[in-house]
């Protein structure tokens, strides 16, 4: 597989932010088999990793990293011990670090939400 410079850039950034080696994944799909949210996702977790391996920047537009709740079921299931949630977080962070907010605070009705929901959500979804 030949990666061009921009492919390598995305791959490198995700690996740097997550501290993970994307090629440690051999695409067995156990992460996706155990993920409780695949029904809502546009890409399966293993497909997200595959796109990262290929340096495919379209992964930054995917819904999956924003549905992932860092529940870590993939993390305990991975036979290679890969931290899949950290890869999801790296993809989110690439957007968040450009001052992007996935959740629009100006329009959010927080009246019935407990602090624990707001703190966790805003930590993961605002830049």
């Amino acid at each position: 597989m030949n990666l061009n410079e921009s492919d390598k850039q995305l791959l490198g950034k995700v690996e740097e932010l997550s501290g993970e080696n994307a090629f440690s994944c051999y695409q067995c799909g156990k992460c996706s088999a155990g993920c409780p949210f695949t029904e809502e996702m546009d890409l399966l977790p293993n497909q997200v990793i595959r796109k990262v391996q290929m340096g495919d920047a379209s992964v930054l537009e995917a819904e999956t990293p924003w549905i992932c709740a860092s529940c870590l079921s993939c993390e305990v299931d991975c036979p290679k011990g890969n931290d899949v949630p950290a890869i999801m977080e790296a993809i989110r962070e690439i957007s968040l670090r450009e001052n992007f907010d996935e959740v629009n605070l100006n329009e959010l009705d927080a009246s019935d939400l407990p602090e624990i929901a707001l703190v966790s959500n805003l930590r993961k979804k605002t830049g």
């Binding site: 809502e40 549905i67 709740a69 929901a117 993961k124």
Partner: peptide, 20 residues
């Protein structure tokens, strides 16, 4: 017993949490 409830998605993706 160990399946995620949807966690903080309750803020912006309530339907995911209702399903869980």
């Amino acid at each position: 017993e160990s399946e995620c409830c949807g966690s903080y998605n309750t803020v912006d993706k309530k339907e995911v949490v209702l399903g869980k």
